[in-house]
Design a binder for these strands. Sequence first.
RNA 1: GCGCCGAUGGUCUAGCGGCUAUGACUGGGGCCUUCCAAGCCCUAAACCCGGGUUCGAAUCCCGGUUGGCGCACCA
Length: 584
Amino acid sequence: MDRYEQVIELAKRRGFLWNSFELYGGTAGFYDYGPLGSTLKRRIEQIWREIYVIQEGFMEIECPTVGIEEVFVASGHVGGFSDPLCECKQCGEAFRADHLIKHITEDADSLSDEELDNIIAKNSVKCPECGGDLGKTYEFNLMFKTQIGPGTGRKGYMRPETAQGMFVDFLRLARYYRDKLPFGATQIGKSYRNEISPRQGVIRLREFTQAEAEIFIDPKDKSHPNIRRFENTAINLYSDAAQDIGKSEIMTVREAVDNGIIAHEFLAYQVALVNHFLQRVGIAPGKLRFRQHRKDEMAHYAIDCWDAEILTDRFGWVEVVGIADRTDYDLSAHANMSKTELSIFIEYEQPKMVEKFVVKPNMGKMGPRFKGKAKVVAEALKALTAEELEKEEIKVLAAGEEFTVPREMVEFAQETIKISGETIVPHVIEPSFGIDRILYSVMEHAYDEEMVPSKESEEEAEDEARIVLRFKKEVSPVKVAVLPLLTRQELIEPSKEIAIKLKDKGLLVAYDDSGAIGRRYRRNDEIGTPYCITVDYDTLQDNTVTIRDRDSMQQVRAPIDTIDNVLYELVYTDRKFETAGKRI
RNA sequence: GCGCCGAUGGUCUAGCGGCUAUGACUGGGGCCUUCCAAGCCCUAAACCCGGGUUCGAAUCCCGGUUGGCGCACCA
């Protein structure tokens, strides 16, 4: 049993992850989050929100998971998110049809399926594997298609990423942020991709949770106002160059920027922020690296792109976050599609005075003379020089026709114009998180089997394994278990009272009075509960209980009346366990 | 999508033509129990689905579903 199997087995058994639709045999690529999984996921998302929404100030929005066709035509997903596949009739191997004819045509990737078939037939392209005949080319689009409304209603797609919602809402967002760059918006939600063959459990799903931020910045200023926060943070970088020698390198953010390893300060800040987030939710720092996209794997419009990768036992390095400078690609694409300018007006610190040659055709005179052609003639005039405009009879070519314009119909002058700013299309910095993958990684990195001496077999000295999920206290689904030492009414009653007190403090509490105390400790270790409170007979004498620490199995004794505050501080602040009570 | 290998209580598993289908752990109820999976009693719980072969199928064959691995794919 490898680590993956151990984690998945525990996850299934204890209510973290279940195969969806199991009752009906299940379907690949879908997972249910059970009671603990769902809670764990929410805790991870909550930390994400704390960092991106509260600290960074990128407000969260919520857009539909179904999108209309235009959105995904603009984003390129309708055309580009599918691949033309064609299969060998003999051996069944599937190939990218456009790749098969790359050596024959130049623009192979822009051809239709029919055109691809034609070229394949004309050049009698055969299966590269076995030489067999190739079948018809078909498009495999990775988006789930649906229909909006009844009948022949409008075409819709399940969104393959949450990002488009933020781009589509750009103008509204810009207004919300009062037209000041940089600003950003975030979204946490489900996205859908009809994967050809989803595998590897929760690593590749057909329905998955993304957390994305779209940060809009000034293309001419990619510094970050708060870079000092991370300047000296050391990060494990696996740059393009480092990949050539196959060894990542730990360096500070400042070094990475100064040496041009990360394209610019703003992107470097985002890389550092992701690093901070992943470690806070419990990813082992030694199993985390940032890999730069190679020149040939990066999207053509992107300036620089880094993937956060986490080392897992079975799958090796798994990509969990992508951080990219996508330039103005997305906004420009939607601007073209929607025929709406998606830009921001940036005011200069000092208005610029610009000398400009201005041509002012007198439309009141030109209109009657040139009728319907007046507009094109006027446009043509604007392109002329002062010298040409000074002639008595101005000859101008417009719409393939020569027109003669009398001098008095057009004025021109050298003018000084005040320009107080300019319109720019912001660049987009996009950190995009795969929450499901992060959740699995958090579980795997938290999973630990520890050998502890067994009480019973002292002579044989047979140790037994203690399974512990060493979650960060912040992310553990259950924060504290309350356990009467024995199943006796006089201990049960005060235990339940303590549980209520802790719930009132907002802590997720488990109460358990079945079985021997040791068994209950182990049950809670297995789901990563950081603290157990035990009520014993001393409690009835002096109103104190024991608090047991999951990682060290040490106990302290603390009074009941402040137990809720103590637990809260242990879980959510830096308060040390040793300070929680008297060491036993 | 192709190829190879698997699928038995909640979990892990035995069985490989002839049962009332092993066993362990877990779960529930009870007894006992003063701090790390103790003991005793009781109890619940499974042959992935559909066809076929056979007197008889958990077992053999075919198809499907599903899981793992390899290939392809992975904006």
